[in-house]
């Protein structure tokens, strides 16, 4: 017999079996409580406002900002490109596709980090990856991105570099007070520093 016939005799029955059995939709490898605690302790869920601002400015398509506050608060102010999923609706069927995926980087935010962290813990318990929390929430965002304070003149260079980046991001994202002042006080270039966006560590294949 030809190899093709052998192959067919082997794979067609297997195909019939796999087509006939129901799909296994359980997620056997959920996080255990101790693993979750480990992640909480190492604060891996937090993404700095600088990273998020950089991704917004660069229009990174992998960023998905999720506002977990109420709809009213969301309509009053939200970050560019954010969608609103109030924490009460987090587990509804229609949103599961947003959390249960492998391509986008979900960043939860609320006024502080409390609700965003709750959302992160819930999705993490469900076994979903790629969910993060905006460090410090919107309060910290206002403080460092929209109204960055110039560091003291004795601060190390890194502080100034950070400040320059924040100022650049603030201008790009429509911060209020910055455009009113003349930003000529600093000798360093006003160009925002390029920051590497976190990449997933999984290996990709190829031919």
């Amino acid at each position: 017999m030809k190899p093709r016939i052998w192959l067919a005799l082997f794979v067609i029955p297997l195909g019939l079996i796999i087509a006939a059995v129901p799909q296994n939709t359980s997620h056997p490898y959920k996080l255990t409580a101790s693993q979750l605690l480990e992640e909480v302790n190492t604060r891996t869920q937090f993404i700095t406002p600088e990273t998020v601002a950089d991704m917004i400015v660069k229009k990174d398509p992998t960023l998905q900002l999720i506002d977990v506050r109420s709809q009213g608060e969301f309509e009053k102010f939200s970050l560019p490109g954010a969608i609103n999923i109030p924490i009460a609706d987090l587990l509804s069927e229609e949103h599961s596709g947003i959390f249960d995926q492998d391509a986008k980087m979900n960043v939860f935010y609320s006024n502080s980090t409390l609700m965003a962290n709750e959302a992160w813990m819930l999705t993490r318990q469900l076994g979903y990856e790629n969910n993060y929390v905006l460090e410090g929430g919107l309060n910290y965002w206002f403080e460092v991105i929209l109204n960055p304070q110039e560091p003291a003149s004795t601060s190390p260079d890194e502080e100034f570099a950070k400040y320059d980046f924040r100022k650049g991001a603030s201008q790009a994202l429509g911060g209020g007070t910055v455009s009113a002042q003349t930003p000529e006080t600093n000798s360093a270039a006003p160009k925002p520093a390029i920051k590497a966006t976190p990449k997933k560590k999984k290996a990709a294949g190829g031919c």
């Binding site: 296994n24 359980s26 997933k200």
Partner: peptide, 27 residues
């Protein structure tokens, strides 16, 4: 088709969680 059948059967037996398998994103 070998890899496909392998993954589907492994998932059926609960040996792999297909959601943890990396899928190259499409642009």
């Amino acid at each position: 088709i070998t890899a496909m059948l392998g993954l589907l059967f492994f998932s059926l037996f609960g040996w792999v969680d297909l959601d943890l398998v990396y899928v190259n994103p499409t642009y």
